[in-house]
Computed example of a mutant assay.
Amino acid sequence: MGLIWWILPAIAAVIGLMLLFAGFGKLAKLKAGSGAFRLTFGVAFLALAGVVAFAGLNLQTYQRLTKERYAANIKFEAVEGEENAYVLDLTFSDGRKLLEENGAQPILRGNEFEIGAQVIKFKPMANMLGYDSIYRLDFIEGRLSRRFTPEAVTEATTNGIALAANPGFDVHRMAQEQGGRFGIDAQYGSATYQPMGDGFEYVVNISQDALIARPSEATKVLIQKQRYPGYSSTQESSQ
């Protein structure tokens, strides 16, 4: 689909140039009427080529800067007999599962989870040329959503697990220190949080600069039921 935005203006430009040269040829033969006619249409086609080209560039720029890539899938299952405790089923984009050293799935406690990543971002022009941001999922943690008070600074605990280990050469740190010279921005990370609950499932995507955790349609209904007891979806109501 992207090529059409280059093919159309190229065709219009070729037609416009042909008409311009034909118009100049007519003027050179002292045929003012037909020469002016061809020149007018030649300029019109060139203008059309420019408009289509700029529109295509704008559209492709938007698509590049808003591009999202799949990063992980997250599911939760309640731990029987324990409140606010959930078995975490996390699948990375390459199909790997997150497991503890003993091979068991981790357990997160709380009613909310947060997942974070280190992000190395390229400048917008580099994105347009095909250089997508680079990321590494860093951690996932469980916590209570109402763990602070508005009256004073309070302490709170979280529980979680690291999703990556530094293999030795820290690319992210190098990008932070030297990346500015090459149009690279690695001065920040990105994190997103959502409610935890039994049967909740999320798809985590990474845009050019941020993580996004989107609940499945079934999870949206479960969240609404959790917030508003008695809630029923349109589909449930029609059944």
Rank of each mutant, 00 (worst) to 15 (best):
T219R: 06
P195V: 04
S145W: 02
K75Y: 00
G42A: 07
T219Y: 04
F54V: 11
Q118A: 04
A78R: 14
Y86N: 02
G130E: 07
Y231A: 08
F148Y: 10
E80C: 00
S216L: 04
R181A: 12
A13D: 02
M174I: 09
S190Y: 09
M125G: 01
T192F: 03
D185F: 12
Y86W: 10
P9H: 09
R96D: 13
A175T: 06
K225N: 06
Y131E: 11
I15H: 01
A165I: 09
G23F: 03
Q63K: 15
E236A: 13
Y86E: 02
D89S: 14
E83T: 13
E201V: 02
F122N: 07
I11F: 14
S93E: 14
A213P: 06
A28P: 00
E101P: 01
F92M: 12
V204T: 03
D132V: 00
K75C: 03
W5G: 08
F45H: 10
Y70T: 02
G197D: 08
H172L: 12
I11R: 04
Y135V: 06
G95V: 06
I15Y: 04
A72T: 09
E100V: 03
N127E: 13
G35Y: 08
E201I: 03
A36S: 09
I140R: 07
F21V: 15
Y228C: 00
L27W: 09
R146N: 14
A22G: 09
L99M: 09
I7A: 13
P150W: 10
Q235N: 08
Q118W: 08
A36N: 14
L19C: 06
G81K: 10
L17I: 13
L20K: 08
Q187W: 05
